[in-house]
């Protein structure tokens, strides 16, 4: 899932302080699971903003609202008429949601209430770890299911650097060395010899280095277009 963290309230306040009607707009999927931007958090932020407005003598109306997902239009279309009555929308969805909504609100600004951090998993309640970089060219079959792109601080493809100490990364002794984990895992799988192969320089263009990415599934688009014609 996408993991995010709430922005500091001072930063949020600096975005909204000059608005009269603010909507804190939550998303109840990924960012709700990581306690950053679901309905509960949207409500809390709205309360904090109202308090701040009253402290600073600002005449500001702050409400909150949430939908299940901000990345597909049908989820927020039913509430768009209401959304468009505000003069600023503070979205607590991930960056995808902020962008997607901003394309649909005309002159009303959509600002981010959270920092979108990474694709991660819930190790234990309240502990989220980055496990995938969304690089567009997965090699987990070559590295024992452990991603060197995002779990190695240097994204090394051919083994550890000289900075591993007691299984930890040179960046911090709280960070596991991904290559230490990869070697241990591949020993366990009996596939260590696979690592002898030198992986050549990577084509990074399927990652964020080839310009904005788009995936179109042609047959689904065709079915959709046929149905639109019928309709």
């Amino acid at each position: 899932m996408i993991v995010g963290t709430q922005k500091p309230i001072d930063e949020i306040w600096s975005m909204v302080r000059d608005s009269k009607r603010v909507l804190v707009f939550g998303c109840n999927t990924c960012v709700a699971i990581c306690h950053a931007g679901g309905e509960k958090e949207a409500e809390t932020i709205a309360t904090l903003l109202r308090m701040r407005a009253s402290q600073e003598g600002k005449d500001m109306e702050v409400n909150y609202l949430s939908v299940m997902r901000h990345c597909e239009p049908e989820y927020f279309e039913p509430v768009m008429d209401e959304v468009k009555t505000y003069d600023l929308i503070l979205s607590t969805a991930c960056g995808v949601g902020v962008n997607f909504l901003a394309d649909r609100t005309g002159t009303i600004p959509v600002y981010p209430g959270i920092n979108t951090s990474f694709y991660g998993a819930v190790q234990q309640p309240g502990d989220f770890t980055e496990l995938c970089g969304g690089c567009g060219n997965c090699i987990l079959h070559l590295t024992g299911g452990i991603c060197p792109i995002v779990r190695c601080s240097k994204s090394l493809m051919n083994g550890p650097c000289g900075g591993t100490k007691n299984g930890k990364c040179e960046v911090s002794d709280e960070v596991d060395c991904a290559w230490f984990l990869i070697v241990e895992r591949m020993k366990q799988l009996g596939t260590l010899e696979k690592l002898a192969e030198v992986l050549p320089p990577r084509n990074w263009s399927p990652s964020t280095h080839g310009g904005p990415r788009r995936i179109v599934i042609e047959h689904l688009r065709e079915i959709e277009q046929q149905e639109e014609k019928k309709g």
């Binding site: 240097k154 090394l156 493809m157 030198v198 992986l199 320089p201």
Partner: peptide, 8 residues
């Protein structure tokens, strides 16, 4: 950057 690693 780490576009390439040492081996590469």
């Amino acid at each position: 950057v780490y576009d390439v690693d040492t081996c590469q």
